[in-house]
C-alpha cells in the first residue's frame, strides 16, 4: 500500500492505495466522495468524469498513483462558495437536464470543461463534446439545452433543424 496525496476540490487529501487502485476508487472508497459514479468500468459511459489539472478525465481509467500531487475537481466541488448551485448545475435543474441523476456528475464535469474551452458552443459542438458521456434517461435533449443555456445562449426556440 502506498499513501497518495493530491488536492481535491481545493483541499489537500491523502489515502492508502494499491498499485491497481483507480482514481475513481480513490475518490469513492478512499475519500468517500461518492458523487463520482462508475457506470461501466470500461471508459465508455463517462459517469466518472472529473477534472485533473483542469482537464476532463475518466477517473475509472486512471491509476490514483499516476495522478499523485495533481489538482483534482469533482462534482462535490462545483457548487458556489455559499453552497448554491453553480451556473451549469442551475441550468441542468432549470431545463430538466437530469432524471435518475446517475450520469449527471460526469455530464456536469464534461460540460464545465467544454465551456472553459469554448464559452459559446453551437448545438453540434455540445453534442460532439458530450459524446463520451452516455445518458439513458433524457434522450440528451434537455442536457444539450442546459449546456447551451449555461453558456448564456437563448434556448427558448431550440428544435430539430
Amino acid at each position: 500500500m502506498t499513501k497518495v496525496t493530491m488536492t481535491v476540490n481545493g483541499k489537500s487529501v491523502s489515502a492508502e492505495t494499491e498499485g491497481r487502485t483507480l482514481l475513481s476508487a480513490y475518490l469513492r472508497d478512499g475519500l468517500r466522495l461518492t458523487g463520482t459514479h462508475v457506470g461501466c468500468d470500461t471508459s465508455q459511459c463517462g459517469a466518472c468524469v472529473v477534472h485533473v489539472d483542469g482537464k476532463p478525465v475518466k477517473s475509472c481509467t486512471v491509476f490514483a498513483q499516476d495522478v499523485a500531487g495533481a489538482d483534482v475537481r469533482t462534482i462535490e466541488g462545483m457548487a458556489n462558495a455559499d453552497g448554491s448551485l453553480g451556473v451549469i448545475q442551475q441550468a441542468f435543474q432549470d431545463h430538466h437536464g437530469l432524471q435518475c441523476g446517475f450520469c449527471t456528475p460526469g455530464m456536469v464535469m464534461s460540460a464545465a470543461a467544454l465551456l472553459a474551452e469554448n464559452p459559446k458552443p453551437s448545438e453540434h459542438e455540445v453534442r460532439h463534446y458530450l459524446d463520451g458521456n452516455i445518458c439513458r434517461c433524457t434522450g440528451y435533449h434537455n442536457i444539450v439545452k442546459a449546456v447551451m443555456a449555461a453558456s448564456g445562449q437563448d434556448v427558448s426556440a431550440l428544435a430539430a433543424e
Binding site: 457506470g39 461501466c40 470500461t42 465508455q44 453534442r127 458530450l130 434522450g139 440528451y140 435533449h141 442536457i143
Partner: peptide, 18 residues
C-alpha cells in the same frame, strides 16, 4: 457484453425532439 460493443445512442446520434 460491454458498453464498448453494445452501441447506445450518444448525444450526437439524436436531434432535438418536438
Amino acid at each position: 457484453g460491454s458498453y464498448m460493443d453494445y452501441a447506445m445512442p450518444r448525444a450526437e446520434d439524436v436531434p432535438f425532439y418536438n
